[in-house]
């Protein structure tokens, strides 16, 4: 698929020409634009300042609420290499679980769409698996499968696959009936109906499922680490708490959220890169 980036350029063009039209309104516009751009950051920074001053002026002990500065301090007190060890442990499990989840969910969704029998027999099982709290099952999985990566990956899979199955099947079912008729009238093989029509049509849905799943993957990896792990950010947080190092635990938490956010954005970037047509159009 070759896509021309032309429409995007066209979308931005009017704004720029508008700016240069009249200088006075241009300056105003510029401030407005910059304001929109920096408003979230300003808000975030003022929130941090407020938090810091409450902790300092109110002499709040760190074990009740650590101040942002103590969290930052704690962050830099842990060596870079240790952060990387923990990050890699969590990321490895989360991404592996996520990928395995994709490899299971998409073929499963295709099977569910194509076979009414499978849909009737497997779907209820999926719902049961989904409604079982993974936190409760995690210790059993560790007992059955050992304390290695495999069980942590399985726990991550259990938590991530369902949103993917739901979004993929929904997307495939939302394919216009007329295109299915087109395919039937051409007497095309069934697999081409799936691959050339249904799956591409499901791409926007699949990606919203992927965005939900990637954040769940991190949660899954952390849940698994709470049960059994020697490394990882979840383990690190649990460990810091057990030593009452609350700022350090917070630092781990902030790092974890940052990673989650980054992965969430990455899924969006991948979608924009591979399937630009599937993104909602900016008007």
């Amino acid at each position: 698929m070759n896509h021309t980036p032309a429409p995007k350029a066209a979308l931005h063009a009017p704004q720029q020409s508008h700016n240069s039209k009249t200088t006075a309104s241009g300056v105003k516009q510029w401030f407005k634009k910059q304001g929109y751009r920096f408003a979230p950051w300003l808000f975030f920074i003022s929130l941090l300042i407020l938090w810091e001053s409450i902790c300092r002026l109110g002499h709040v002990p760190t074990y009740i609420l650590p101040s942002p500065s103590s969290i930052i301090n704690a962050f830099f007190n842990v060596s870079f290499s240790r952060w990387m060890v923990h990050l890699w442990a969590t990321l490895r499990v989360a991404l592996l679980g996520f990928i395995v989840s994709i490899l299971i969910s998409i073929p499963l969704s295709i099977a569910l769409i194509r076979s009414e029998l499978l849909n009737r027999t497997i779907y209820p099982v999926l719902v049961v698996i989904q409604s079982t709290p993974v936190v409760a099952v995690a210790p059993l999985i560790i007992v059955l499968m050992g304390t290695g990566d495999a069980s942590r990956v399985l726990i991550t899979c259990l938590i991530t696959f369902f949103p993917l199955v739901v979004s993929t099947t929904t997307g495939m079912l939302e394919t216009p009936q007329e295109l299915i008729e087109l395919s039937q009238s051409l007497r095309a093989p069934r697999y081409r109906e799936t691959w050339q029509i249904r799956i591409p049509y499901a791409i926007p849905h699949i990606f919203s499922g992927l965005r939900v799943s990637i954040t769940l993957a991190i949660i899954g990896a952390v849940v698994a680490e709470f049960v059994a792990a020697e490394q990882g950010l979840g383990y690190f947080i649990q460990f810091s708490t057990s030593f009452f190092k609350i700022p350090q635990a917070f630092a781990g938490l902030v790092f974890l959220s940052a990673i989650s956010l980054l992965l969430f954005k990455s899924v969006h970037w991948i979608q924009a890169w591979l399937f630009p047509w599937s993104l909602p159009k900016k008007k």
């Binding site: 216009p176 007329e178 087109l182 039937q184 009238s185 591409p200 399937f275 047509w277 599937s278």
Partner: peptide
């Protein structure tokens, strides 16, 4: 059975947005 010597035009264009 479905005939392939017919061309069908639908109410909506139903073009594939990725092509």
């Amino acid at each position: 059975e479905p005939r392939d010597d017919v061309g069908i035009v639908f109410q909506k264009p139903n073009l594939l947005p990725w092509l």
